[in-house]
Amino acid sequence: MTPPSPSLALLKRDLGLSLARGGGPVLAAGFYLTLMAMVPLSLGPEAQTLSKIAPGLTWLCLALASLLSLERLFERDYEDGVFDLLRTGPLALEWVAFLKCLAQWLGTGLILSLMTPVVMILLGAPVGVAGWALVAALIGSFSFALIGGAGASLTLGSRKGGVLIALLVLPFYVPPVIFGAGLMQAFVTGAPVFQALSLLSAYGLFALALGPIAMGAALRSALN
């Protein structure tokens, strides 16, 4: 048996931590569902209103739910001194940060994405939207995780944690929310979806390129 690679070991550990005691996924999924349940309660149950705003609202709630677990993304290991260990390992700090985001996404973003089409349909979006909704939510939540990770790394060690992360990160969620909700809108109105999808994917790739670099730099500054 070959020994597990450092990357895999880290991914496994972080996934275990984010799943442990249901903290991450259950919390995020519960928050997401509660938010969505508040929508008909605040806007009235008319199917016509709901189905019109469902795609956009779902995206807003997806963005908000993605914020939830960011605070603990690096904070936990920062407080426990685990980063001292991680930095003496063979992996670059950028890669370590990326793996942590990936584990976080597997633990929460993935589950939120799987819920997204269901929630949308419950709010009255046409059933045919499910496929695109899932694809878009997967790309979107992954960009949320990476951009959010950058925000989390910047606030590391400051005592205002959660709210500050939300303040820093939400403006950067504007493009994926616009493209994702735009994709849904395009589908519902029968317009071609490929422009929105390609813009959303482009933003995802951009987050993939920028996120780890930013996280690496921010972590290096926070961890000295």
Partner: peptide, 28 residues
């Protein structure tokens, strides 16, 4: 290098054995 600081680099919720396994795999 090995660096051993004041903080022990252990996650409170994990088993000591699991932490050792992780450290071995991660540090090669």
């Amino acid at each position: 290098a090995h660096y051993l600081g004041h903080a022990e680099a252990l996650s409170p919720g994990r088993l000591a054995g699991a932490e050792l396994d992780f450290q071995r795999a991660f540090l090669g």
